[in-house]
Design a protein around this nucleic acid. Structure first.
Lengths: 189, 189
DNA sequence: TGTGACTAGTCAATTTTATGACTACCATGG
DNA sequence: CCATGGTAGTCATAAAATTGACTAGTCACA
């Protein structure tokens, strides 16, 4: 019952098709949730069945028709309820952390390579989030935008995404430095 | 196939029972993975069946007997393989972010309350991680420990956990400030 | 003398996520 | 003219995670 609300939140400002939604959730831009296309289509079906969203067919030529969805009154009410209920704290579940946890017992070269890869993925995302944020605030400074802009929700979640990736990158770099130094010391001994 | 390796990594340095493992994974200290007891018991059963861990019965009086598990050679090899394979990037999946994404369309009071709650949960975790880190490095400075300590894996993952929670807290506080200001401006208008 | 909390688990059912394959049709490049 | 890639989706299955209940003994506390 969580993806449900993520979809509702995503459809608040824009009318989207399943496909468009899938792209923003699946690839990259999922700044506040992540899900795969199949999951989204299934959820959209359920949401429409429950009357929380309404779809309309858009006929296109030169490409397949699509169904655009928007949130209904009932959907908004549902989101309202969801917001009032208390959220369970999030947890980290990251393969890379598992690998680092085992750092003292596995091949350091392989581990460092993984950390490197992750650091550059994080760097790419940092870039992406930076662009998104600039795009949203336009000419205004961040202060200005946060004070007077409309639709700051997406901006705030994007800020969190940015900070998360910065944390990722910084930690990766630190871990690489530490592990590299230890490997050097070890091979020398 | 992911919890699998997390369990292996957790059992590298200590022999633990399912119950002990469950406590560290479930409540609080899960600095590198999260899972519930039932899931862990199931995974331990599978791991033992596959020969990646070995259990031994420990008879206790005054409390139920328990089975302590340790990683076997095969288990270590499995972890080694896992480390070499590339890790998929992690994603955020947080109810609170969904709520904030919808910030422009829901009751700000409720949302701010949620952010407040989250900020204090994060603060508590920051405390906990700080204690864990101090406990691990003992008398040494962090630099010292990371250079020469044995078992830095858990220390590094704990550092990530700490940074994550700091990120959480900072973001919550920022969001609270922004939303409070907007609410003030709005109710005045 | 009972009540709740802690140790140490197990069982079953359900929900949520993930994986992979598959249909169409159009446009573009080579 | 044929392969590739994008749009717009569907179907089925497998794996992982969550939820809730249940056993059984010990300890402390009131």
């Amino acid at each position: 019952m969580a993806l449900r609300h993520a979809v509702l939140a995503a459809l608040l400002d824009v009318e989207l098709s399943g496909y468009q939604l899938a792209k923003s959730f699946d690839l990259g831009v999922a700044n506040f949730w992540y899900a795969q296309p199949q999951q989204l289509y299934a959820e959209l079906t359920r949401l429409e069945r429950d009357g929380l969203i309404a779809g309309r067919e858009v006929v296109q030529d030169a490409r397949p028709n699509k169904r655009l969805f928007r949130v209904t009154e009932a959907g908004l009410a549902e989101l309202e309820d969801f917001t009032a209920a208390s959220a369970k704290p999030p947890f980290i579940r990251d393969d890379l952390l598992v690998k680092v946890q085992a750092a003292d017992d596995v091949d350091l070269g392989a581990l460092i390579a993984q950390l490197d890869e992750r650091a550059s993925i994080a760097a790419a995302k940092i870039d992406l989030f930076g662009q998104l944020l600039r795009g949203m605030r336009g000419e205004r400074t961040e202060e200005e935008f946060l004070r007077h802009g409309d639709r700051i929700g997406p901006y705030l979640t994007c800020m969190r995404g940015l900070a998360f990736e910065q944390g990722n990158r910084d930690w990766c770099e630190r871990a690489i430095a530490v592990l590299t130094e230890r490997r050097r010391a070890h091979t020398r001994a």
